[in-house]
Design a protein around this nucleic acid. Structure first.
Length: 488
RNA sequence: GCCCCCGUCGUCUAGCGGCCCAGGACGCCGCCCUUUCAAGGCGGAGAUCGCGGGUUCGAAUCCCGCCGGGGGCACCA
């Protein structure tokens, strides 16, 4: 039997980190077993639909490389994969349960339902449907239906006994049937609830492993009951824990971005996100942190999945993203960073020039957006904006702009006669000047650094100047010299 | 109120009866390297394994109770 898993979001908004980790686990499990991963849209709640949400789900999955084998856009042997297009199937199945005595129509108004609930809560009883319509006589039913009273279909939950559920990570979890109520499986608008739709579709789509959030555990007995009523073999259920924010509360906007796509905007690499997410509630062994996709697929299984919730550690993600950035080829980094630079600069950026810069910044950035701060000066035209005080630094040039101007002047005259503009030649020419001036090389370099980059922290000076080119470097050195001379 | 789940350094985790007075990683601190910033190397602080009983020669690991946290109890998924 081939393993088939699914990711079944409801299109009520953008997928967040937690959804995506669940999708990742489902995807990995399918790939590990050489099976299929499907995408199914659960849009049975017509009120909560959000426009563009389906696209956002797909966009996120694609960005991360979690391609689906069957889905709404690509079809498959069990199409359609959008629940709202499967209404007839769900209604048919509701009818079948009705006909076989597993379900009944309920005509209670929402007003009556909320009154019942209120009274129960006042009595500190668990809020549950009071089964008012469960044992209506055929005559009563006929009378009510003659009035065209809207009805829902409720599942007839056993009044006594226990329902034994099984979760792959937790084992048997028994539920007393008298704690369950007669839940709705078909709403009055003709749409199924999750309980019916998910079970019917999972069965019809031959899903072998249902991987979903832990919040579904308390619904598991209902689902098992539905499988029993249909006489179907239930799939393996794997309920994964939640991802929490740093305060151990549910991950939300308060904790920074929780929408998965926001991480793309922040300059995170999909492979880093995958690696990081995989390690939230799962581990390869006792020491491996950086795990490539192939290894993940090869090693992933549910047996090393944890049941306790995991706090989302943004700092570790950032570190990991840095590791992946450092592992990129210069061309690879240039290609990925280019859109971020272009966006910030508002102008096209030459890919080859960026590839030259890449090795200089690669170990200095943690996200692709850092490229802007780290390398914008390579592309900006005209005078650099910086505080002239930074030219002087805090050491021997502090408070002595005239001396700094002289120093820059001698750097300029030394360097402008150079034949080449390689970083080794530049350093060989400039380094001795420091000694002549009686300052430490680093102090002289600091002045040049600010003059040439506008920053006190920048990539290695001479490589930077080399990539920057003779003209731009000299132009900036002269501009700095003039500013200092004017100040002195 | 009822039902269910979870509980190892701040965080992610290893651990499935002796290898653990608990290992790795992020973060933090220090040193080294060094033209800045990083990266890298080395070292350090950091966990009464939620608490209390029990089983056992021996428990983070098994059992029971408690406490704490979370989830569910919708014509939402």
């Amino acid at each position: 039997m081939t393993v088939r898993t699914r990711y079944a979001p409801s299109p009520t908004g953008e997928p967040h980190i937690g959804n995506i980790r669940t999708a990742l686990f489902a995807w990995l499990l399918a790939k590990h077993h050489g099976g299929q991963f499907l995408l199914r849209i659960e849009d049975t709640d017509r009120q909560r639909l959000v426009e563009g949400a389906v696209e956002a789900q797909m966009e996120t999955l694609r960005w991360l490389g979690l391609e689906w084998d069957e889905g709404p856009d690509k079809g498959g042997p069990h199409a359609p994969y959008t629940q709202s297009e499967r209404l007839d199937i769900h209604q048919e199945h509701a009818e079948r349960l009705l006909a076989e005595g597993w379900a009944y129509r309920c005509y209670c108004s929402s007003e009556r339902l909320s009154e019942v609930r209120k009274a129960q809560q006042a009595r500190k009883d668990p809020p549950r449907y009071d089964r008012h319509c469960r044992d209506l006589s055929p005559e009563d039913r006929a009378r009510i239906e003659a009035d065209n009273t809207p009805a829902v279909v409720r599942f007839k939950t056993p009044l006594t006994g226990e329902t034994f559920t099984h979760d792959a990570l937790r084992g048997e979890v028994p539920f007393a049937n008298d704690t369950l109520d007669d839940f709705v499986i078909l709403k009055s608008d003709g749409y199924p609830t999750y309980h019916l739709a998910a079970i019917v579709d999972d069965h019809l789509m031959e899903i072998t492993h249902v991987i979903r959030g832990e919040e579904w555990i308390s619904s598991l007995p209902r689902h098992v009951l539905i499988y029993q009523a249909f006489g179907w073999e239930p799939p393996v259920f794997v309920h994964v824990s939640r991802i929490l924010g740093s305060d151990r509360a549910k991950l939300s906007k308060r904790h920074g971005a929780h929408a998965a796509l926001a991480y793309r905007e922040m300059g995170y690499l999909p492979e880093a996100i995958i690696n990081f997410l995989a390690l939230l509630g799962w581990s390869l062994d006792d020491k491996t942190e950086i795990i490539d996709l192939d290894t993940l697929i090869r090693a992933f299984d549910t047996d090393r999945l944890l049941t306790n919730p995991a706090v989302f550690n943004a700092e570790k993600l950032e570190w990991m993203n840095g590791v992946y950035i450092r592992n990129l080829s210069p061309e690879g980094l240039a290609e990925r960073a280019r859109p971020f630079l272009e966006g910030a600069l508002g102008q096209p950026v030459d890919a080859q020039k960026l590839a030259q810069i890449a090795p200089l910044i690669q170990e200095r950035i943690k996200t692709l957006t850092d490229v802007v701060e780290m390398a914008d000066f390579f592309f900006t035209e005209g005078p650099l904006k910086y505080d002239p005080a930074n030219l002087l630094g805090k050491k021997s040039f502090a408070g002595e702009p005239a001396r700094a101007a002289d120093a820059l002047a001698s750097v300029i005259s030394t360097v402008e006669t150079l034949d080449g503009w390689g970083h080794e030649a530049l350093e060989a020419a400039v380094r001795p000047l420091a000694e002549e001036m009686g300052v430490k090389a680093g102090e002289l370099f600091a002045v040049i650094r600010v003059a040439v980059t506008g920053k006190t922290a920048a990539p290695p000076l001479f490589e930077t100047m080399s990539v920057l080119g003779r003209d731009l470097s000299l132009e900036r050195l002269r501009a700095a010299r003039d500013r200092l001379a004017a100040a002195g």
